[in-house]
Every structure is written in C-alpha cells, then in structure tokens.
Amino acid sequence: MILIPFIIVIVALSFRIVPQNCVGLLETLGKYSTTRQTGLNFRLPLIQKIRVVSLALQPLKLAGYSVITKDNADIGATVTLNFHITDPVKYSYENTNSIESMQQLVRGHLRDIIGRMDLNQALGSTSQINKDLATAIGDLTNTYGINVDRINIDELKPSAAIQASMDTQLKADRERVAAISQAQGEAKSIELRAQANNEALIATATANAQATKTRADAESYRIDKVQAALKNADQNYFNNQSINAFEALANSDTNLVVTNGQDLDQTGQNAVLAKMLGRELKD
C-alpha cells in the first residue's frame, strides 16, 4: 500500500505536456537528447526533463540608450522589435542569453547607422533608419536561433541641452520668417498704395484733359456757328445793329467814341459779334 502513492508520483513525473506552438527539448542527465513536439510526451523521471521553448512571435522593447550623431549630438533612442525563435537548440544551448545578445546586436548597428548621420538628418530619417537597421541585422541573429521579424524606432530624442538649443533656433527662425513676411507685406502695401495713387493721378489728368478738350471743342463749335451766322446775315441786319449800338453808346456814360469812318458800316457786325460771344463792344 505504501508503494501505490510512490508509483502514482513516478507515473505523473513520467509525462510532460508541450503546449501549442512550442517544442520540448528533452535532456538526459542534463544533456540535450532530442526535440519533442506538441502534446503529451514521455520522459524518465529524475533522469530526463523536457525544456519547453515557445516558437510564437514575441514583442520586445529595448531600454532607452544613448547614441551619438556625426556632429556629436547626443540622442536618446527607444526601439521595439518583434522576433521568434527559429532554432530552439541554438537558442537554448549555444548562447547563455540569446535575447540579450540580439539586443546588443541591434544597439550596435543602430549606433553605427546614426553615427553616420548629423542630428537633423537622423531626426528626419526614422523610416530610413528602420530599413537600414533591418538590412544590417539580416540573418545575423540566426546565430542565436532567433529571427527578427520587425524593428521600429519608437523615438529619437535629443538631450535636454540640445533640445533647448533647437527650440531657441526654431524660435529665432520663426521670428525671422515673421519679420520677413511683415516686411514683404508692408512693401506690397506701399507698392499697391503708390500704384493706386498713380492710377488716380493718371485718371484725374485724363479726365481733366478730356474736359479741356470737350470745352475747347464746344467753344470752337460755338465760334464756328457764330461766324456762319454772320456770313448768312444781310446788310439790313447789320445796319439795324449799328443803330442799336449807337443808341446804347448814346445812353452810356461814354463822352467820346472814336471810330474809322470808312469802317462805320462794320459797327453793326462788331455789335452782333460781341453780343453773340457775350462780350462788351469796345472800339
């Protein structure tokens, strides 16, 4: 009866379940013997054991660390990656810590890539750094029985001193751009006002010139009409106007009128012309 519990324990220790998407590494007296697949697997109690290794995709975030750019700027880098184990035997037995070795490989290549870039280039080339890093690592991690499926640079952050300097430079650049924009706006405003004033002066001069021309044309037209009317008037009309002119002179304050006797018959024409032109007759 005493042996029954002991037998039950021995039987229980003789089997090990290997979960889905995992493999079991069978070790006999501490030495690797064979690889067992998913399911229930037998082992010799106390002599053999099964080390379970997951083959599923695993995420890993590397602790932030410092890298130096080509222009000696200090940048803090944060990297995440996804990997899976491709060779459980290499992963478990050929390296004491394959994951740490993989992290060191990633850090080393990232330092090398960023070390060939200046600060501004590195901060603006995250996607390119991801590609270069994936290419650089390539199949190197297979040495550790691991394959890196994806690498992503989460953050490249300059040191506090560099960030403060960048903020100052950015502020100065913004102020310079704003000053240039303001100056350009004022210059454009002055140009538009000058253009508007010039156009107004030109329009005023054009209008004055047109008005002067119109008045001159009207005056010329009126004189032509007067002269045409005088040409068509007969001698009786001018005689009548002469009588009216002498009558007006007789009723005026003028004490003396001197005229050429030979041109006496032109007096009526002069009176008519002066009346039609709106001027006073002076002889």
Rank of each mutant, 00 (worst) to 15 (best):
G64A: 07
R279T: 13
F6R: 11
A271K: 09
Q266N: 06
Q266I: 01
M166Q: 08
N97K: 03
T254L: 02
K157C: 02
A172I: 10
S101M: 01
L133D: 04
D132V: 12
I162Y: 06
K90R: 11
M1P: 05
N255W: 00
H109F: 09
S101P: 01
Y93L: 00
K225A: 10
L3V: 12
Q269G: 02
G108T: 13
A218Q: 02
L281E: 07
F246C: 13
A183E: 10
L170C: 10
G124R: 09
I17T: 10
I137Q: 02
F83V: 02
I7G: 12
S14E: 04
N41I: 09
I113H: 00
K157A: 13
N41P: 07
F42Y: 15
L273F: 03
N197F: 03
A196I: 10
R111M: 12
A203L: 14
E100G: 01
T135R: 08
K70Q: 05
S252N: 06
N251P: 08
G278I: 01
K131L: 14
Q103T: 01
K157Y: 05
A172C: 05
N270W: 06
T35N: 11
E94Y: 13
K157L: 05
I243K: 12
L13D: 15
D112M: 09
R176C: 00
I223G: 02
L110Q: 10
T204Q: 15
G185T: 11
H109Y: 11
Q37S: 12
Q210R: 05
L57A: 12
A245C: 08
K49E: 12
Q241F: 14
Q163F: 09
Q195F: 02
I75L: 07
R16D: 12
S33Y: 13
I50G: 14
G124F: 08
M1H: 10
L40G: 03
T212D: 15
R193L: 15
A274T: 13
E155Y: 04
Q128R: 14
K213E: 05
R43E: 15
I180N: 09
I10N: 11
I8E: 06
P158G: 03
A233E: 02
M102C: 11
E94T: 14
E247D: 14
A250F: 06
N82H: 03
D71Y: 01
L230F: 03
E27G: 06
A196G: 09
Q195P: 04
A160V: 13
